Computed example of a mutant assay.
Amino acid sequence: MGFIKLVVFGFIGLTVIYFSVSLYSRSVRKERLEDEFDAENPDGDRDARDAFVTAGLQAYDASIRPKLIGLVYVVPTLAIGAIVYMINAN
């Protein structure tokens, strides 16, 4: 029963961490795109800026970074599994 609680609450905790890191990473990328557009076009059009940011975020979504954030689930699961195996193997 304790193992099931660990899995359930661990999954909930990892999900919260995953969404937090994902939202933070996306917001940092969006801010960087906005700053890049503002530096290149000091008197830029608002619609052009929005289109530039949208295109950049679509490229971000297709990149590997959002997929790597999924390691938030994999690494702790493997670490806990390895620890449990080592403890029980001795």
Results as ranks from 00 to 15, higher is better:
46 R>A: 10
74 V>F: 03
69 I>S: 00
62 A>L: 09
66 P>E: 01
13 G>N: 08
69 I>H: 01
11 F>L: 14
67 K>N: 10
52 F>R: 01
72 V>W: 04
15 T>F: 09
26 R>L: 03
87 I>Y: 13
84 V>G: 07
52 F>W: 04
1 M>Q: 02
22 S>Q: 09
37 F>V: 03
62 A>R: 15
5 K>F: 09
4 I>Q: 08
67 K>H: 06
66 P>Q: 03
65 R>S: 09
83 I>Y: 04
37 F>C: 00
48 A>V: 01
21 V>R: 12
29 R>H: 10
20 S>H: 07
39 A>H: 05
65 R>G: 02
16 V>C: 09
24 Y>M: 10
56 G>N: 07
11 F>G: 14
13 G>W: 06
56 G>F: 05
16 V>F: 05
17 I>M: 10
47 D>M: 13
53 V>E: 00
28 V>Y: 03
20 S>V: 11
54 T>P: 00
13 G>K: 12
85 Y>L: 12
89 A>N: 14
78 L>S: 02
55 A>V: 06
59 A>P: 03
15 T>I: 06
90 N>C: 05
35 D>G: 09
80 I>K: 03
60 Y>H: 13
48 A>K: 14
11 F>K: 09
43 D>R: 14
85 Y>K: 10
57 L>E: 04
4 I>L: 12
10 G>E: 00
54 T>A: 14
43 D>T: 11
14 L>I: 04
71 L>M: 10
3 F>Y: 06
6 L>F: 05
67 K>T: 09
71 L>W: 02
68 L>F: 14
65 R>K: 11
21 V>Q: 10
19 F>P: 02
57 L>D: 03
51 A>G: 09
74 V>K: 02
45 D>W: 05
4 I>F: 10
17 I>E: 04
34 E>K: 08
27 S>V: 06
3 F>K: 07
45 D>E: 09
9 F>W: 14
66 P>N: 09
54 T>M: 08
61 D>Q: 13
31 E>F: 03
35 D>L: 13
85 Y>A: 11
80 I>L: 14
46 R>I: 11
85 Y>R: 08
22 S>D: 11
12 I>E: 01
50 D>K: 15
41 N>V: 04
26 R>N: 01
33 L>F: 00
56 G>V: 08
88 N>A: 11
16 V>M: 13
34 E>S: 10
58 Q>A: 11
43 D>N: 14
83 I>C: 05
35 D>P: 01
67 K>Q: 12
1 M>S: 07
8 V>W: 02
27 S>C: 00
6 L>S: 07
88 N>I: 11
54 T>K: 15
64 I>C: 00
12 I>H: 03
50 D>G: 10
64 I>F: 09
88 N>P: 00
53 V>N: 00
42 P>K: 05
59 A>H: 15
25 S>Y: 01
57 L>T: 05
48 A>C: 07
